[in-house]
Design a protein around this nucleic acid. Sequence first.
DNA 1: ATTCTCATGTAAATCGTTACATGATTTT
DNA 2: AAAATCATGTAACGATTTACATGAGAAT
Lengths: 201, 201
Amino acid sequence: MMSLRYALLTALADGHPRSGYDLLAYFDGSIGFVWHATHPQIYRELDGLRRDGLVSNELVVQTGRPNKKVYSITEQGTHALLTWVATASPLQMMKDGMLLRTFSYGRLDSELAVARLADYRALHEERMVRYRELTNLVEASPDRPSRLGYLLVLRAGILHQEAYLRWCDEAVAAIRARPRAARRSPGRKARPAARRRTARR
Amino acid sequence: MMSLRYALLTALADGHPRSGYDLLAYFDGSIGFVWHATHPQIYRELDGLRRDGLVSNELVVQTGRPNKKVYSITEQGTHALLTWVATASPLQMMKDGMLLRTFSYGRLDSELAVARLADYRALHEERMVRYRELTNLVEASPDRPSRLGYLLVLRAGILHQEAYLRWCDEAVAAIRARPRAARRSPGRKARPAARRRTARR
DNA sequence: ATTCTCATGTAAATCGTTACATGATTTT
DNA sequence: AAAATCATGTAACGATTTACATGAGAAT
């Protein structure tokens, strides 16, 4: 779907020229929340965007620090971005390592599962604090065209972190409420006495 | 992180042998909610798992329909899965095309944005209905070791769909509440009279 | 002395999607 | 007559990650 190009165009849409390095940092504080990218990806995609005429670049010679290439969105780029923004978005297939693990939490020792959930909760809480801080900053800033979108994205982030926190609490309660028979120790077989054959034979 | 292999091992963890085709269908109704995969991926990864001894397979000759290969998890595979499940999960970097578009919704015509949000909301509502139906089914089923995990994952899904629905409603309200001056028509320049130069010059 | 920031890239490997390919049976 | 189900794969392409590579200046 080539969304990375649109992520980069989004970052350049305010008309402010940015280098690949700038974009990497910029991603970290806003667009990266909904579309993460690493530096090799960004440098390569910027090259592709330039080839396609959606951005232009200029070499900025610096003394005392490395030279840099700053990229600006072109009129063609702005048009391509707005056309894409107006299209319908398909439902995203989510990939979440924690939830994948959760599938097997019924086979894991209760206390271990609870501890992992606590770690996970802490990560999401941190993230929520950050989103709230950013929201305050943006709300206090002047109303540029990008402000509404940014605030909406932050709000989505906060609502999702709330969902995660609530889920962690419910999951801990559900695991604690299990009958004792269902709990297993880690690294051990379920019932070594009554050994079961696997389907391989 | 090789999570696809663990997704497949999760699907085979109940000891029930399954073909690649079975796994594809199985993914669609459960594990696919948190770790989506397509059939070429599944067939290739099953081959890798077999090479590494985490699954074994057997050719089942059929008449009237194509032969199939059924895969079973090995003891080594079960051990690898449980070891992985017990590890801490990193925060997932999310990639969401809708939220990426939302960044630019301040530059889009209000009614168009509202229409897109309505489409998006409908998709998530459908998904929530499905999760609720599955929850009822699973709650009515006997308590196998996999049940707790499945219910927890479904609960996470429902909480997230609720967050999406609420976000869509809030976003529509926020867009409607905008001052008229901020609204743009689609496919047109902002103010063609006062043409701005791009930073390229 | 070491680490951090600035700044850019290449190379290799892995992961993921889409299209191509086949073919019998069952259902609409 | 057409489409869906069952069942497996390959090929080509595209996206993403991790490691390799460099090097000056500023800060701890």
